[in-house]
Simulated scan of single mutants.
Amino acid sequence: MDWGIPPGGVVSSVEVETTVPALVSCEVKASPAGTAIRLKRAAGLRRCSGVSVVIVNYYQWSNTRQLLRQLRDCSAWSQGQVRVVVVDNGSSGNVWIDTVGGIRVRYESRNLGFAAGVNRGVRELDRWRWGIWKNEGQIQEWFLLLNPDVTVPAGFLDAVLDMIEKLDTEEPRAGVVGLRLCNPDGSLQGSCGRFPTFGSTLRGLLRPRAWRKCQMLNTQQRQEVDWATGGCLLVRRDCFEQLGGLDESFFLYYEDVDFCRRAKAAGWQVFYEPRIAVTHHWPLHARSVPAPLRLITRHALMQFARKHWGRWSNLGLRGLVWLEALCREGWSRLRRRYRDSACYHQLRQLVGDMHRQRQQSIRQQLAFASRYLRAIAAAQDRVPAEQDHLDKNL
Rank of each mutant, 00 (worst) to 15 (best):
Y253K: 04
T19E: 04
L202E: 09
G199R: 03
V28H: 12
G137Q: 07
T35W: 12
W3D: 07
V11Q: 12
V53K: 01
D353Y: 13
S249T: 15
E329I: 01
S332H: 10
H299I: 08
I376T: 15
G113R: 10
S249H: 14
F195C: 02
V257K: 10
Q387M: 14
V150R: 00
G230F: 00
L315T: 15
P184G: 06
L315F: 09
L125Q: 06
G113T: 11
L246F: 14
C327E: 04
N57C: 06
C239S: 08
G90L: 07
C182Q: 13
Q242G: 02
V257S: 02
G9R: 02
W322V: 06
Y58P: 04
Q242T: 08
L394V: 03
K29Y: 10
Y338M: 07
D168A: 03
C343P: 01
Q138D: 13
V16T: 14
V152R: 04
N57I: 02
V383H: 11
G186L: 07
A30T: 13
R106C: 06
S187Q: 04
E15V: 09
R318I: 03
F271H: 01
P148N: 10
A263V: 06
L293E: 11
F198E: 09
R335H: 13
L366G: 05
G8F: 09
E165H: 04
A154E: 12
K29R: 07
D226Q: 03
Q364F: 01
D247W: 03
D88M: 07
R294I: 15
V278D: 00
A30H: 11
G34I: 07
L23T: 06
G310A: 00
Q349K: 05
I139N: 04
C232V: 14
S109D: 11
I5M: 03
S200F: 13
D73Y: 07
G245V: 03
S49N: 05
T219N: 04
I132E: 03
